[in-house]
Design a protein around this nucleic acid. Sequence first.
DNA 1: AATGAATACCTTAGTACTGAGATTGTAAAC
DNA 2: GTTTACAATCTCAGTACTAAGGTATTCATT
Lengths: 193, 193
Amino acid sequence: MTKATETGRGRLRATKARRRGATTPRGAAPSASAADPATAASLKLWITLARAYQSVAELARIDIGRHGLSVGEFAVLEALHSKGEMLLGDVQRKVLVSSGGITFLMNRLVKRGLVERRACAADGRARYAALTSKGAALMRSIFPGHARAIRSAMSGLSVAEQKTVTKALRRLGFAAAALAAGHPTCREGIGGD
Amino acid sequence: MTKATETGRGRLRATKARRRGATTPRGAAPSASAADPATAASLKLWITLARAYQSVAELARIDIGRHGLSVGEFAVLEALHSKGEMLLGDVQRKVLVSSGGITFLMNRLVKRGLVERRACAADGRARYAALTSKGAALMRSIFPGHARAIRSAMSGLSVAEQKTVTKALRRLGFAAAALAAGHPTCREGIGGD
DNA sequence: AATGAATACCTTAGTACTGAGATTGTAAAC
DNA sequence: GTTTACAATCTCAGTACTAAGGTATTCATT
């Protein structure tokens, strides 16, 4: 454990959950109403961003759930699918869960025979995560359909618009992540990409 | 985000960048790689949308947590703050939680004296949720600060850009929600706004 | 070597939810 | 005035996580 637990009093966790096998979207749906126009525009954007995310996430969840996977499980499989063998810590950072969370997800996937842990010769503390041949076959069979599902989820915008929005959201995300990084309520070891 | 630890055998420890803090709450970080350009653009947008949402949500979570509230609790308070007394089912749909979830959140808030349940004269099955005076005072005191936090979270974009992105995301969200609605895996009674 | 700090992962307890079904109440059709 | 259907909320068991702490291992100093 790094960090010195300087949170004074409050226990307050604010977690979010996801369910296995295609379940629900999530959410804290924000709302708006502010005095000055700039703040109003930001609040409105926040609502819209949250709703858009949740709608797309719901579609992704449905699609992934069809194959009996949770979103977190799929994220791990996909990371390993696209990058090959990875250290658990790297998978954790890519998938954005806590250290306990990656252990949990790995255990489930190992139990189903989709991934395996491999020793790391260079560092005895570390483990690699890798797809088994069964896991690799699964990803090859479901990834193209998933990509099509995402594409149709984004069909409200033209490809050119998608590129424009992507650029803007990237700047927005970086700025927000930089702000969050400066704040006290830090978490285990999760970073952006 | 600590990212050294190369896969190769010579694991130099190269002291990476110092802890970047907390970037994101949770979530399934998607990734990309597709054959045709349209699908690739959609996957890329999905990643970026998810990261941007998660970064802003993390900031919101930090800000809300400062006052000892979870995101779900704040969402309920805010709904009642902006719309006044509401039927529980309406709060549920606005906040996007399950029926069990709204009961859970209400119980917590009632226990803290921030909201109360009121009978509905017209329909004996239904209950209203409403802020107590303590809850209303709390919201008056923390909402402006929260709005400022959201505004600064969005500071990566100019106000004009925010409006453009809002419009695009609204279309995207509607299209995705319409698609999700047509799918089999629906939920209890949650609709868009 | 021996020590100490830092790291990678795992374990455990706790949390904020979900989903199915029970309960109570309303509305419609007989 | 019963059924019959259906709606709003609550109950409860289960789930996917988080945070904090633990263990083994490595690196840097001594």
